[in-house]
């Protein structure tokens, strides 16, 4: 390893010229990736719009079946986790190792809380015969089964993103504990943060569209 890299930062990959270029490439990369994520969820939202237009009444009825208190609780949980994530990124920029680890672990804990709440919601849907398929309650009006198909696809894919996010965070927090990230090199924390915030934004839209739709009629 006798390359003439005496002045290069150890975390600078060899095809970049300097740390700024590397950081800019990774954040831009994450943003471009998030655009693909927007389009990925976009297909589901498209289906949502079409069927809500076709079955406005069934949509309200189906929305009644969701527990908006739990949905609201999860919204709060995710917003707090976004705050702790933003604080973790700031701690990395300021080279504060202990704060980084603390905020990252808090974010992960909140993410886990979200998934646990989600689990109990899903369980209730199974018990109430609201899962599409042969066991779906046949007394319900036309269109409600599509609502629940979309509900499970949207929240299911969102939850899968949360699980992936927790995996990324595990990697980041282990490295943060080793003191990898500091004012000169914090790209991975920032990129992980962007992803986490995006997952939060998806939920910000899912909550009113799925849970709050039928509340005024209740």
């Amino acid at each position: 390893m006798s390359t003439p890299t005496t002045t290069r930062h150890p975390k600078l990959q060899e095809h970049f010229y300097n740390m700024d270029q590397q950081l800019e490439a990774s954040t831009l990369g994450m943003w471009v990736f998030l655009v693909t994520e927007v389009m990925f969820f976009g297909g589901l939202f498209m289906a949502y719009i079409v069927y809500r237009h076709m079955y406005p009444h069934a949509w309200v009825e189906a929305s009644h079946e969701l527990n908006w208190q739990l949905g609201g609780l999860n919204t709060m949980v995710l917003i707090v986790s976004s705050l702790t994530m933003a604080l973790a990124v700031r701690a990395a920029m300021l080279s504060e190792k202990k704060q980084q680890v603390f905020y990252l672990l808090t974010t992960m804990a909140l993410g886990t809380v979200f998934l646990v709440v989600k689990f109990f919601e899903y369980k209730a849907k199974f018990e109430h015969h609201l899962v599409p398929g042969p066991h779906f309650n046949p007394a319900l009006e036309q269109g409600m089964q599509i609502f629940f198909s979309l509900y499970f696809m949207m929240t299911g894919i969102h939850a899968a993103h949360m699980v992936i996010g927790l995996g990324i965070m595990t990697y980041i927090v282990i490295n943060a504990a080793k003191g990898t990230y500091n004012a000169e090199y914090y790209g991975p924390v920032e990129v992980a943060g962007l992803y986490w915030h995006f997952v939060d934004i998806v939920w910000i839209f899912l909550f009113p569209l799925l849970y709050l739709l039928g509340r005024h009629g209740a």
Binding site: L28, W31, V32, V35, M39, G42, F45, S82, A86, F198
Partner: peptide, 27 residues
């Protein structure tokens, strides 16, 4: 604020907006 687009380059802003513009085309 959380994702820091406010302090980011015009390119990042364009990318962030373009996703939503394309979604509106689909819708």
């Amino acid at each position: 604020f959380f994702m820091g687009v406010r302090w980011n380059t015009p390119l990042t802003k364009t990318v962030a907006i373009s996703g939503f513009v394309w979604l509106l085309i689909l819708f």
